[in-house]
Amino acid sequence: MNIFRLFGDLSHLLAIIILLLKIWKTRSCAGISGKSQILFAIVYTSRYLDLMTTYISAYNTFMKIVFVATSYATVFLMYMKFKATYDRNHDTFRIEFLIVPAVILALVINQEFTVLEVLWTFSIYLESVAILPQLFLVSKTGEAESITSHYLFALGSYRALYLLNWVYRYYAEDHYDLIAIVAGLVQTVLYCDFFYLYITKVLKGKKLQLPA
């Protein structure tokens, strides 16, 4: 565990907490893509099946359980409890266009052709693009609430910090995992446009509004 990884994980945790608090406090999930949240639930379910087979550390187990549980909690809040506030007319991204290629890619490019390894690889590929329905929703409505922007910034920072973690581990531990690194790069690049808007607008107290 190094500082980049720790802050990456904390940033991820913060993103989830921000999102759940936003939904709970405002009793609304307006502006949030349920499609992205479903993809995240699929991602964590398929990645953390190794909870049954491999023990890494108490920290690792605890965080995995939190990520899986909160992803289902979010989906439940959006599709059941606060269903009426869900922005379904704008949340029209077709997630099969992300899931199917991720499945195919995981079957073709993986480290080992076993069920758990292919599912792990699938989850890495799918996570890299899982935010697209959310970014699509923001671009469709042309704006995002500040709290949604903070959520997206924390969520995007997590993989960016993981990139630093991988650079560190490459030099310090001679460890690298090419699949995770390439997917992590893709994932971070997808946020770049948003990061730019966040820094130039949201941090200066303005609302995140896309140019018309």
Partner: peptide
């Protein structure tokens, strides 16, 4: 074939 390492990250 390289040995598959455990995935110790999240």
């Amino acid at each position: 074939v390289p040995e598959v390492e455990e995935h110790d990250e999240l």
